[in-house]
Design a protein around this nucleic acid. Structure first.
Length: 571
DNA sequence: GCGATCAGCT
DNA sequence: CACAGCTGATCGC
């Protein structure tokens, strides 16, 4: 959950994604997207009362966010106070103190964020400098570099401060497979299941939030079907989504919900209660979208994992990975403020390494881009690090050995290494950036791009093959080919996904849930990854430092030296 | 009765 | 632990 208090130091009369406490006094509100953790206080009676007595206070968001917000009756009172803004259309807003009449002008530009439908980043330009508030975002490496409004001529604008989605800004989340690769893996799994008979159905175990619509659209398109969901109301003005979802239960792909849906599934029932017409029991598999990540040097990747007899997890992330965040432009001269304290919370003894750039102001910070640079935390000793990343002194030189290693590393990750992909898959970004609510021509599915974008080495897992056969004869060999992932063409499988079958490793089916890590030498889950949605290995070379190593790290840190050693610290 | 907060769960 | 919620219990107004 976001720990951002709602205000930026440059423009403190604005509140973003928080609407309680001090934010009640804001002169303007901004909502980056329609997820509950960014809407705290938004339906509060105090705020409602304030609006009734105000002539100038408004809520600014995208058109899609407005639509999604007003679909919930609890937020209906906002209708007359919302000002939807077009994407990439700079808009001047007056920030008025209604008591004194004092006024400040700021220009805001909405930029696509790729997090969920309607999600945007806000670029503010005014007398206190240029500031970018990213909200939550997932953008492929390079996309931000191409955003016109972040540039002035051919140069990146001077963004003095970035309020950054740091959900996965941790070297452990070094790489998250691209959306295209994840979709490809899911498509393959779905296709190979539902083709077997009309009684073979898939339940997409999606959490109750916006953001999975692109998945529905692409699966619906590929398999010429519609996905069963609980309600269509929120999409009534979004025909591109509407045409791929249905409340008719007679479909092979379901994303419906029920408070006891997991229980239902264990009893081989769909959350909607749908059964086959002729009494034949349904054959249901569940696919749970989860965030999977891979360390910098991880060689093997898989975007689908089998977690039980008929349960799968599929890679899916709403947030940019560590390498994607590091590949953002304009980071070298900007102060970063983290919207999430995940780094502290998740990994309390780890902070990213920063260093000054020679000759730049002291506030300048530069993340070490490719190396995994961890150091014991100093946050306790430096309260300022709570919201701002402070700079440490540069040692002025790179670690030659590591640099050399990266040069020769096949998995080298970084910006500006686009792959030559002749046939681009649909791009999630085009879906998420669509603003026209009723323009059916503006397809959310999007067309292949002529320019090479969206895919880089950092987002393309290594290809490798693995073939196994499940007891019921359902082939578990998956293909993740970007240019040809048709489930109908089994011979064309280009393996870049793998389904892990723990129960085949000497485990009985009934024991697979509790003992699956034992005896599985292909993937060993770390302790921190065993219990939740994130059940994928991180950097394999990481290790717990010895006490003497730790004390050395502390000494180096205290002396302001660069600490580059990769270490995984225990909580 | 309502909202806020927290624990527990997925 | 984290995501993005949901449910239910408890407390104060």
């Amino acid at each position: 959950m976001s720990s951002f208090a709602g205000r930026m130091k440059e423009y403190p009369t604005i509140s973003l994604d928080r609407f309680d406490r001090e934010n009640l006094h804001a002169r303007a509100y901004f909502l980056s997207h329609c997820h509950k953790d960014h809407m705290k206080g938004l339906k509060g009676p105090l705020l409602k009362r304030k609006l009734q007595f105000s002539r100038t206070v408004r809520l600014y968001c995208s058109f899609v966010t407005k639509e999604l917000l007003l679909n919930n009756p609890k937020y209906a009172f906002w209708e007359e106070y919302i000002v939807p803004l077009e994407l990439e259309s700079p808009t001047q807003i007056s920030l008025v103190d209604e008591a004194s009449g004092e006024k400040e002008e700021v220009v805001v530009t909405l930029l696509p964020a790729g997090h969920c439908p309607g999600s945007v980043m806000f670029l503010f330009e005014g007398s206190h400098g240029n500031v970018l508030y990213t909200g939550d975002f997932r953008l492929p490496v390079g996309d931000v570099s191409r955003m016109e409004h972040l540039h002035s001529g051919s140069r990146v604008k001077d963004i003095q401060s970035i309020y950054l989605d740091s959900t996965f800004y941790d070297p452990r989340f070094y790489q998250i497979p691209s959306r295209e690769v994840c979709l490809s893996g899911i498509s393959e799994l779905v296709g190979k299941w539902i083709i077997q008979s009309p009684h073979h159905v898939v339940w997409l175990n999606c959490k109750a939030a916006y953001g999975y619509e692109y998945l529905f659209i692409n699966l619906g398109e590929e398999f010429n079907t519609q996905i069963h969901v609980n309600t269509l109301a929120m999409f009534k003005k979004m025909p591109e989504i509407l045409s791929y979802v249905t409340t008719n239960r007679r479909t092979q792909i379901h994303a419906c919900r029920h408070p006891k849906d997991e229980e239902f599934f264990q009893g081989n029932r769909l959350p909607c209660g749908c059964t086959a017409a002729d009494g034949t029991p349904l054959r249901i598999i569940s696919i749970k979208p989860s965030t999977m990540w891979f360390g910098e040097r991880t060689k093997k990747t898989s975007v689908i994992i089998k977690t039980g007899g008929s349960s799968y997890r599929a890679c899916f992330s709403f947030h940019s990975s560590y390498s994607e965040v590091n590949a953002l432009p304009f980071t070298q001269y900007s102060i970063w403020t983290f919207l999430f304290e995940v780094i502290k919370d998740v990994c309390k003894t780890i902070i990213p390494f920063w260093k000054n750039i020679e000759g730049t102001p002291e506030t300048t910070a530069l993340p070490v881009s490719v190396e995994e640079s961890l150091a014991p935390t100093v946050t306790d000793a430096q309260p300022a690090a709570r919201n701002y990343v402070d700079c440490t002194e540069s040692n002025g030189e790179e670690d030659e050995e590591e640099e050399e290693e990266q040069q020769g590393d096949e998995e080298k990750v970084g910006a500006g290494q686009p792959e030559d992909i002749s046939s681009q898959p649909p791009r999630w970004e085009d879906f998420f950036t669509t603003e026209t609510l009723t323009d059916s021509q503006n397809s959310l599915r999007s067309q292949p791009q002529s320019c090479c974008s969206g895919m880089t080495g950092s987002q393309t897992p290594d290809l490798f093959s693995d073939e196994e056969t499940a007891p019921d004869g359902f082939s578990l060999t998956l293909s993740g080919s970007l240019s040809n992932h048709s489930s109908q063409n089994m011979d064309s499988c280009l393996p870049d996904t793998l389904i892990i079958q723990p129960e085949l490793d000497g485990q009985k089916q009934g024991d697979s849930e509790t003992q699956r890590e034992e005896g599985d030498d292909r993937i060993t889950l770390s302790e921190s990854q065993q219990s939740s949605d994130f059940d994928i290995p991180c950097t394999p070379e990481s290790k717990v430092p010895r006490p003497d190593e730790l004390s050395q790290l502390y000494r180096k840190l205290a002396a302001g030296e660069a600490v580059r050693k990769l270490c995984k610290l225990e909580k």
